[in-house]
Design a protein around this nucleic acid. Structure first.
Lengths: 201, 201, 201, 201
DNA sequence: AGATAAACGAGACGGTACGTCCTGTCTTCTC
DNA sequence: GAGAAGACAGGACGTACCGTCTCGTTTATCT
């Protein structure tokens, strides 16, 4: 391991850049991001921004990865033993988090970034999403082990359907009301069909 | 009504602009769209583009509205009388449509546009989405009337969960496999919980 | 001749650019010229500057060509019939012109530009210099025709020696005093050698 | 004088810097000089360059002072006793030196530097020029003492006229041909006027 | 020998300017 | 009067250098 030549790169500057990025992202959205403005707001030179992040996408991606954008608070899925109630509570809490305009703006900006760019998409998934999805699927598996769910329930599909529904509401600027989240919870828990599943195709 | 002096605005030019926009969208994504390039590709002056569409967003929005971007083909929900099968078939067809890279790129671009801009979001919802959602909810209501669904089943929530799940897969660059779509269909039809719903909280 | 499509290029903007360039040149010298600042001072976009002048050198060169930098006043060589007096008067006037700091700064800047760049050098010669040189050599030829000069006197060499001497004084920050200009005039008119020229080598 | 603790400053590094500067000067001219490149070419850190030379100008100035740029060879004025021949020979030799593109480029670069910057101008004069001028004026004074020149001949003015003429040719990219140098020599030795100088104004 | 200190290479830092590209507006001429 | 062509002011892009500031290393002198 060689001795590290030259001045060491400033972590604090990097953090300032990420914070400035988060602020710009919430204020202006993804495609109005300006590296010039971010650098100025962070008190950094543009070159320093580019030294850390070669592209606007990488910058946003790292913002996601480092948790500057999405709070980890709303991710935890409660576990009271009652999967039905836990799922409902979690979904409602999630919806409430999205009611704050700043959170909504940030997630929309990240969605735009993910839609535009593969790398951001990967980070978006790894962080913002996979964490949530993992927590959700783990809770579902726990419920399965507890004998509350059918065997081989498609936990991933259900988790992504829930997240996807919230994302869809966000994109189309519809609030996710309590009626909505409860209807959705009930649907995935009990199904909407009257007749039981046939002997399976 | 006065007689309209001067040259009439050329519909064919407008169509050329929309086509050029669609091509750029598929090729470069939303935030790399350049009005300059679009005008050049359409053989139009920039002013003409701006005369029709005041903003980049409006341009994309109209692309959506006029169906230049999203094919209406995959929207129709089959109706064989068996809601379970129809839903499954439709979802699989939808997923297959998203497997074509060009379609995927276009929808991602539109998603980015919708995330960034309220107006596009509205158009995105009205067209690309509401059409789909309407078709879906109508099919669900038909099934309800046919006695195949529970009373007051949350059709809208289910429809949006299905679309949202597909969108989520698209954003995170995960293919929606047949196993995925079938698991999802089964989940919303029959639910994943073992025990029946309690006397409703 | 085809009909010229599109908006016509604004001569007044071009003039504003040249004036701003002249001011910057006098204030900061050649290698501190900033296109950004020039554009801002001229109330023009950078692109407009570049549309007219592809390089900093071309800009300075045109400043010279259009006479924005060097006043044509000091160029005219008087003709009273007495070449000796005329030359002396002209050289003194020239020296006095260079005594004004602004003129000196401008010519130094142009010299730097000419030294650095072939194109500017050409323009520098064509305009600032050739005009002077031409006026000077024409006056000398007139004197020759009037029988006041030796036959085949090297008018060009003498003209360039006079200009060169003034330039040298300027570059080395020495004032060209009256004693200097008169000594120089006398030297080229009467020579400094005591003995007459030998039978020519 | 106190004993100087710490590492001694490396003369060889300083020489490497000057050599790199000379090479850059000849290759790119004055206003394209880059301290970054010079440091890299010299295998030195930027700080070391700045420790020796606070500004680009000082660097170029020292290049001149140390003779890295202008060869002292062409400075010596021959002394055969015949001032007319000696002057002619020297001027021709000087012109030949300037025919080499590298020499021409270097002197042009130094001229640009001198035009832009007072300090360089001083060094330019002290070294490159004063040496030449001194040699020339000394030769002229020797001739005067030998009775070959008029009394009180303006040696400095003549010397500067000769150097200025060469510089002017260099700046305007005109070669100084033998015809040119001989015409000039003859002009300053014998004058170009037919009639003898009047009783002097 | 060990401590102290300056100079060194390397290179990151906050900045300024570059030359290019794009935006949205404005002229100009043509249909 | 709409349209294409394209110039315009403005502003962001990503790059190159500036002059300054750490770093770890090397080389000297002083204890």
């Amino acid at each position: 391991m060689q001795p590290r030549r030259g001045r060491v790169r400033s972590e604090s500057t990097r953090r300032a850049i990420l914070e400035a990025t988060r602020d710009e992202l919430a204020a202006s959205g993804y495609d109005k991001l300006s590296i010039d403005r971010i650098a100025a707001a962070a008190g950094a030179g543009k070159q320093t921004v580019y030294r850390w992040y070669p592209t606007k996408s990488a910058l946003v991606a790292d913002c996601l990865l480092e948790g500057y954008v999405l709070p980890t608070t709303s991710i935890d899925v409660p576990d009271t033993g009652d999967i039905r109630r836990d799922l409902g509570d979690w979904l409602r809490a999630f919806a409430e988090g999205l009611d704050h305009p700043q959170n909504a703006a940030l997630i929309r900006a990240c969605t735009a970034a993910a839609a535009d760019n593969d790398e951001v998409a990967a980070k978006f998934y790894e962080n913002a999403t996979a964490a949530t999805e993992t927590a959700l699927t783990e809770r579902l598996h726990a419920a399965e082990l507890a004998g509350q769910l059918k065997k081989d329930a498609p936990a991933v599909a259900v988790a992504e359907a829930l997240i996807g529904a919230m994302l869809f509401r966000l994109l189309t600027r519809q609030r996710a009301t309590v009626a909505f989240t409860e209807g959705l919870t009930e649907a995935v828990m009990a199904g909407i069909a009257l007749t039981p599943s046939p002997a399976q195709r």
